[in-house]
């Protein structure tokens, strides 16, 4: 009696487990698909013809095909790597998060109100519909920097110790940010962090391998570190940016002379303060920039 009862219970348990798994599997399928699986229309083709239902079956089949196609593409899409329009914003923030202890941006700072000045500054120079995010860092290891974001969006880092040491005004900070903006617009940063295979990686799909190529992301992060903390930009790139700045600011002599004087202030700081000596490595060099900007005295 007990044996038969236990067998009955066991079979019930097995049945329930089976039923659960089949429910789970079938829950992914639509009603149409389930119906299609239940009835084998091939065996009753003559009946269907007589009842003039073969057209209906074709309609149902095509509907099911569409559903399956859509589901496959949705499933495939889940393995997409963000394209160019989303990748840079995401990755720059990812890098900022990973480097939060080094950059020290999570601290209480005074509200400099630079965002308003910089907004007017961009508008004055005709750069409209540009979004920007300014992040103050409490570290002298980064002076001022722009990192890529979504199209028409820019992330700026600026060091509070650097601002304090130089006693920079809102306008001077805006000029520095604008210099970074020009540098980013010319694509120097993206060029410097572009590792082999990154172009193909952005906007790709990893459905087949099911594993994301983390090596490439780590390499890009390392390149970010290298550019921001160590190598910076070349003389050629700096020359192009300085020339651009000169051309843009020439129309407003007050802005031009503020920029010129500010470069002089930075040059003095770099030469006198050991903490800021690496500035020349990142942005070579304020002294050269002053020379490039200086109007040439042509002797006729």
């Amino acid at each position: 009696m007990f044996k038969s009862l236990s067998i009955l219970l066991l079979s019930l348990l097995i049945f329930s487990v089976n039923a659960e798994t089949t429910v789970k599997e079938s829950s992914k399928k639509t009603q149409e698909e389930k119906e299609r699986e239940l009835v084998d229309f091939n065996s009753i083709q003559d009946v269907l013809k007589n009842d003039q239902l073969s057209k209906e079956i074709k309609k149902k089949d095509s509907k099911i095909k569409k559903i399956v196609k859509k589901r496959t593409s949705v499933n495939l899409g889940r393995y997409n790597v963000p394209g160019d329009d989303f990748f840079w914003s995401f990755f720059s923030e990812y890098w900022l998060v990973k480097n939060a202890p080094i950059l020290k941006w999570d601290f209480q700072k005074p509200d400099y109100g630079v965002e308003e000045t910089f907004k007017f500054f961009l508008e004055k120079l005709g750069h409209y519909e540009k979004r920007f995010k300014i992040l103050y860092v409490n570290s002298p290891s980064v002076f001022h920097f722009a990192i890529p974001s979504n199209p028409d969006e820019y992330i700026f880092l600026i060091s509070v110790p650097f601002i304090r040491t130089l006693d920079l005004t809102k306008l001077e900070i805006s000029l520095l940010l604008f210099e970074d903006y020009m540098r980013l617009k010319r694509g120097f940063f993206k060029k410097r962090v572009a590792v082999k295979g990154l172009k193909e990686f952005i906007g790709s799909n990893f459905h087949e391998s099911k594993k994301l190529n983390m090596k490439i992301l780590k390499k890009v992060a390392m390149k970010y570190d290298e550019v921001v903390f160590d190598k910076g930009f070349s003389f050629k790139e700096q020359f192009e940016v300085t020339k651009d700045m000169g051309n843009v600011l020439k129309s407003d002599l007050k802005l031009w002379s503020t920029y010129y004087k500010m470069l002089g202030k930075i040059d003095d700081l770099v030469k006198s303060n050991i903490l800021y000596r690496t500035y020349n490595k990142i942005y070579p060099s304020p002294e050269m920039q002053i020379n490039w900007l200086k109007p040439k005295n042509k002797i006729l």
Binding site: P82, E116, K119, R131, K133, L135, L212, M214, L217
Partner: peptide
Amino acid sequence: KFFDNLEIDLSELYYWGRLYDHYFTGKSR
């Protein structure tokens, strides 16, 4: 799936939230 593969830990998640607190944003019009 891309996001899952990054395996962002709790402290990074906290910092990511803080990042938006610290941004000073604007848009030229």
